[in-house]
């Protein structure tokens, strides 16, 4: 029953995919939650790239945002809190043929899953990692996350968060072998789509931090940025995230930034006076662990038997 049927690869006729081919269960996020926009962007991208749904895998951890795979009609893996990345790396290790998206929250990725974040970025296995950063623990209802701003009142810090937030961009840029670091906002669908699309075509791990509105708990954080586009700094470059006129009309505060320049990327990430969006860093030639892990795929059973026998012979008494 596990045997490969000879005809599985033969398509009877060319297939064409529509949006609905990627639409799973009705999304149950709150109205006004930024996650809806990301879902639409990914579904559109899948359609535009005509990704076969069976060849697409969406992996997530636990959190509101990690419900993401349930709303896609592809293969999905809704696993453990903080542990999306090890699973995604394991899938990728022997499956160069599938398309992979990872959905993770600021608690999921930057707190409980921090070790995996650092190491997955270093492994640089091909996948799009979307960090849904709403500055809060949404699912468990309003606890401070590592990216929560100092002074913000949550259930765990009712008198205001004690510490300044951890900066996911500068951390990621600081990881050896990081190869794609971008930031976007959920409320600009054009830039959001363009960023995820750019990440999808990146040969390696594309890390995208998405500033994501949580109307319930962190409206006060994101509403001002949404209302005042001058707080956003649009990064532009011929090799960056393409921004059309609509985007440029909204974001007048712009800076030319060469994404191959890691030092200035780090300087931009560290700026406290604005929210940079666009491509901070890209290196298409970074080492790829998935190229190593997939070596030897396709060896036949008979070849393996022969290899095992050769090894056993080394133990002959």
């Amino acid at each position: 029953m596990f045997g490969l049927k000879d005809d599985w690869a033969e398509e009877e006729r060319p297939r064409h995919f529509f949006l609905e081919d990627y639409e799973g269960a009705i999304a149950r996020w709150c109205p006004g939650c930024g996650d809806h926009a990301v879902l639409s962007a990914v579904q559109r991208l899948c359609r535009d790239e005509q990704l076969p749904p069976e060849k697409t895998v969406v992996v997530s951890g636990i959190g509101c945002s990690s419900r993401f795979p349930h709303y896609m009609k592809t293969y999905g893996f809704h696993g453990l809190h903080g542990r999306a990345l090890p699973v995604a790396c394991g899938i990728r290790s022997r499956r160069p043929d599938v398309h992979m998206f990872v959905a993770t929250g600021d608690g999921d990725n930057c707190s409980i899953g921090t070790a995996h974040w650092v190491h997955a970025v270093r492994y640089n296995m091909r996948m799009v990692v979307m960090l849904f950063d709403n500055n809060i623990y949404g699912l468990t209802k309003n606890q401070t996350s590592p990216t929560t701003h100092r002074g913000f009142n949550s259930m765990t810090h009712p008198h205001g968060a004690w510490l300044s937030p951890l900066n996911p961009l500068s951390v990621t840029l600081g990881i050896t072998n990081a190869s794609f670091v971008a930031q976007t906002v959920d409320w600009n669908p054009i830039h959001l789509y363009a960023t995820i699309r750019e990440g999808f075509h990146h040969p390696g791990l594309a890390f995208i931090r998405i500033l994501q509105r949580c109307p319930h708990f962190t409206a006060s954080v994101f509403e001002p940025i949404q209302r005042d586009p001058s707080l956003v700094l649009l990064l532009e470059h011929g090799d960056g995230i393409p921004a059309n006129d609509t985007v440029r009309r909204i974001y007048k505060n712009r800076q030319e930034h060469d994404p191959s320049d890691r030092n200035s990327a780090q300087a931009i990430a560290d700026r406290g006076d604005c929210f940079p969006i666009g491509l901070l860093y890209r290196n298409r030639n970074a080492e790829r662990y998935d190229e190593i892990s997939a070596r030897g795929l396709g060896m036949t059973g008979a070849q393996k038997v022969a290899a095992v026998n050769r090894m056993l012979d080394r133990f002959l008494v």
């Binding site: 453990l80 090890p86 394991g90 190491h119 892990s293 070596r295 396709g298």
Partner: peptide, 26 residues
């Protein structure tokens, strides 16, 4: 590598089993 396989030294035991589960799932 002699059987076309691969050993992954993970960052910790949680990642190790997560990686194994990912490969199994796939």
């Amino acid at each position: 590598q002699e059987i076309g396989g691969f050993l992954h030294q993970a960052e910790d035991e949680i990642a190790a089993i997560g990686f194994a589960i990912g490969a199994s799932y796939a």
